[in-house]
Design a protein around this nucleic acid. Structure first.
Lengths: 294, 294
DNA sequence: GTTCCGCATGAATCGATAG
DNA sequence: ACTATCGATTCATGCGGAA
């Protein structure tokens, strides 16, 4: 277990070799998209993307527990007026590798990048592809249930007033009455569409996604004490979410500056949380006698 | 022009042969999904879906104008715990056929079908794949603008001189200098995520999608008088939307009962609308001297 | 303490210009 | 012909300081 709760600097396909088979409960990651983030990562050409990714996903498959889940946050960019096909090609190739393509969640980014073009609107969503090793996997649906009376306060499902108005203007009538179906119930299961604003603004670190996004999947697919891996950890957002929820983490990144940044964010957090949440979680975990697969 | 404004009963790959090349402005359709709607359609197996569809999309490509757009509403179903791959395989094959995969809109169905499963949430979105023949196509973005977000109420009321500084200063992405354009503006361009409730109708017909969905795309991609084709017309929803917006339609379906149902819905509507909207639109269209290809 | 206003800034994309 | 860089366009949100 000496590999947990650290940030490893290097290529994940290489560094993951030091991890045992079937040891990770959840992989949540957002790799650099093709030709994006060229300054921090290499800038992979769309045509080369699949071949670049497959050796890494091969290792992901090895280290993931049979009951574990792999969530891949990705979106294809536009090239010469067309959506690139590397993401859907990747899905097909990963299935050949042995992965099951279980589900595709949609992350609706409410504050997507502005802009206007003659032939397309702003891109306001990303894919959250779910892959598994087997049909049976751990899923703790009750952990992400959404309080009903509380729409406005819920970060995950709440639509703004404007969204409601927009919808009404399109469909006219018929939506409002459905609310009555939920009267008397205090929480419902979410759907596979996740509404969440991107983190923007004046923070010192800039993450590709808001902390609430990995948080949601960590709660859904792991229990306290479980191990969460992010092989493209970036500024450490996934690890922060895992730690705050009493899970353990493994973070890998090829960029040293990012590794340092992630370590900084985490060291403060670990000192703060260790006496309470994490230790408690680990004790619970160990007392339950969960066996660690080699 | 004798082929417009009618419902044709038959297989669309066959029936479309009577249509000239480059004659359709918009194709909007929701084909039977694999193994779904088995009672009304044949019930195509997921493995056979792509081969079943390609001869049809070949004809779509022929009849579509170079400036036209093809919107395909589709979603892969779950088979043995996995999302089927026939949709993404279809995208790759259609590109080989000559189509450009321009964009993928998301239809977020807010009141999706209820249910609970141990390993997945309710599926509340569908794909709206946009295909084109060329990079340049007609798009009338102003026709589908939506109310501006709530932020404008508070943020934009007091316009100060400092907004112009951004332009002068270093990074200046230029937003500041055009702030004057925003004063008093109450609508913005939409994104590629469409929030729309499914019609939970007490109506006699059961449509696969609400009328507002084709309506949105008809407004976005066509002008009055243009021709909208739905080769899987079903109960006629696409044709109704087209007619009500002063466009012409061509509807095809292999199921006779559906054809009759669609004709019933449309005949009443045509009598009602012909003297005004449609004729007016056709006259405008013809007076503009638009040339009909071939 | 709340609310309000100023400001910064995003996995963007297109078209034109330059090498 | 093909790639690299740059300017123009556009919306929603978090943070911090002021009222």
């Amino acid at each position: 277990m000496e590999f947990v709760n650290q940030i490893i600097c290097g290529d994940c396909a290489t560094e993951l070799r030091q991890l045992p088979d079937n040891s990770i409960d959840l992989i949540f990651t957002s790799p650099p998209y093709a030709d994006q983030r060229r300054n921090t990562y290499g800038g992979i050409k769309p045509a080369d993307y699949v071949d670049w990714f497959l050796p890494k996903s091969e290792e992901f498959l090895r280290v993931l527990k049979p009951t574990g889940t792999f969530i891949l946050n990705i979106k294809e960019r536009v090239v010469k007026g067309e959506r690139s096909t590397y993401v859907i090609e990747l899905i097909l190739r990963m299935r050949e590798q042995g992965w099951l393509w279980t589900e595709e969640f949609i992350w609706h980014k409410k504050n997507s990048y502005p802009g206007k073009w003659p032939n397309r609107f702003r891109d306001s969503w990303e894919r959250l592809l779910q892959f598994n090793k087997h049909r049976k996997f751990h899923m703790y649906q009750e952990e992400v249930m959404v309080p009903v009376g509380d729409w406005a306060k819920t970060r995950l499902v709440a639509l703004s007033d404007t969204d409601q108005i927009r919808d009404e203007s399109k469909v006219g009538s018929g939506f409002g009455k459905n609310v009555s179906n939920w009267v008397g119930r205090d929480s419902v299961y979410p759907t596979n569409v996740i509404h969440m604003a991107t983190e923007c603004g004046n923070k010192s670190h800039s993450a590709a996604f808001p902390e609430a996004l990995p948080e949601w999947f960590v709660r859904l697919f792991t229990q306290p004490g479980d191990i969460v891996l992010d092989p493209f950890i970036g500024s450490g957002t996934t690890a922060v979410a895992a730690l705050q929820l009493g899970r353990q983490f493994v973070g890998i990144d090829v960029n040293e500056a990012y590794c340092d940044l992630a370590r900084d964010r985490l060291s403060g957090l670990q000192l703060q949380l260790l006496p309470t949440v994490v230790r408690e979680a680990q004790e619970t975990y160990l007392n339950n006698g969960s066996t660690r697969s080699r």
